[in-house]
Amino acid sequence: MASFFEFDLRALNIFSHVAKSGNMSQTADLLGITQSSISQTISNLEDSLDTKLLDRSLRPIELTTAGRFLYDRSELLLQEARKTSLAIKQADYSQLRHINISVVDSMVTSVGRALVDTVSKRAKDWSISTGRSHLHGYSLLSRNADIIISDDALEDSDNLCRFRILREPFILALPNDYTKQVRDLSKLLTELDFIRYSSNSLIGRSVERHLRSMHVEPPERLQLDNSYAVVSAVSAGLGWTVTTPLCLFQSGVKLHQIQILPLPVDPLYRSITLTARKGELGDLPKKMAREIIGTLEKDFLSEMSDKKPWLKNLLTLGD
């Protein structure tokens, strides 16, 4: 099969030896292959590059101008290839070189320390970034991220390993001074504005889709970028929202500062999943998922269960 680069390391190695010795027979003996194989490799290399590399009319064989150009560069490529081969053979694979992790915003405060502790033990260097869930998925598939912790588990993509961290319900969040019983979200809209997540976020789209299925379509008045802004706006009495317990926990707004209730419509859930490419990171994704779940159980789940007991059976950690 033709190489995309018009040559491969084997051909460059043969060419380099011929260039140094000026003799195909001597190169054949040195490399342990036939002289005809050497000649054919050089001819194929010249054909693929569409230029003459050797002047065969001279003895010993000499390089053409193009041949000298390729020789100088092939020596650098072959030297780097040898270094890479040696590094792979001598590498300690218990220590990964660099890990890029993308995390959904609502996980950062709650599990950031567990992430750092786990990855710093297994990688010489690492980075953790946040952002939109759909961009996390793209980053993993395009190899710009090695691990994503997101509400987008890329279920339609193959060759990925997935570890569910949390399944949680969407909940209704209201200002403390709203004292009426909520049975109908359409009626609630006539009394309080709806505070929505940004429409380009996965959580925002999920909420909007669910509300539409219930024939609830709030006017576009208040659209905010993150959980802190959304939940703080509710606490300030600007309106109501649909969020999740983890988003509320991440926001830093205390549970006594707002009301939270089950949705008075059909329930809606989301799952946070750790996703990585299969086989590349050893047991790191599994260990990281276990550490994150342990942290959430100790901090997030215990607080939610103590202060809002009705949530306990609606929150599921792990698979």
Rank of each mutant, 00 (worst) to 15 (best):
V253A: 10
I33T: 07
S94K: 12
D158T: 10
A236Q: 12
F5C: 03
L281F: 13
T27Q: 01
L281C: 01
L53M: 05
Q90H: 04
E291P: 00
S139Q: 15
V207C: 03
G318K: 07
V111M: 04
K312Y: 05
L301F: 09
L261C: 06
L78V: 10
S3W: 13
D125Q: 11
H256G: 03
D225C: 02
S106T: 05
L211N: 03
S127N: 04
E208A: 15
S85D: 14
I171E: 08
R212H: 07
K286Q: 14
P175S: 15
E75C: 14
S302E: 11
T64G: 01
T316R: 12
V104A: 15
M304G: 10
A145D: 00
V116M: 10
K254L: 08
A173Q: 03
I38P: 03
F15S: 04
S94R: 11
S21Q: 12
H210F: 00
F170S: 05
T243Y: 03
T295E: 15
I258A: 05
G137H: 08
R277F: 04
A289C: 09
R290I: 13
K180S: 12
I292N: 11
E62K: 12
K180H: 10
E80V: 10
E6F: 04
S106Y: 00
D117A: 07
I195H: 02
A233W: 04
Q250A: 15
G32I: 06
A2L: 08
R209S: 15
T27S: 05
S16I: 01
H17Q: 09
L30V: 07
T273P: 07
D92L: 02
L31I: 10
L224N: 10
P264Y: 02
L154P: 01
D105Y: 10
S57P: 01
Q90N: 13
T275A: 07
P285L: 04
P264R: 06
R10K: 12
T34A: 11
N313P: 04
S3Y: 15
D72I: 01
E80D: 15
R209M: 13
R143I: 01
G112S: 10
P245L: 09
D225Y: 01
P218F: 03
S271G: 08
V18E: 13
K312F: 06
P267A: 05
E6G: 01
P267E: 13
T295F: 01
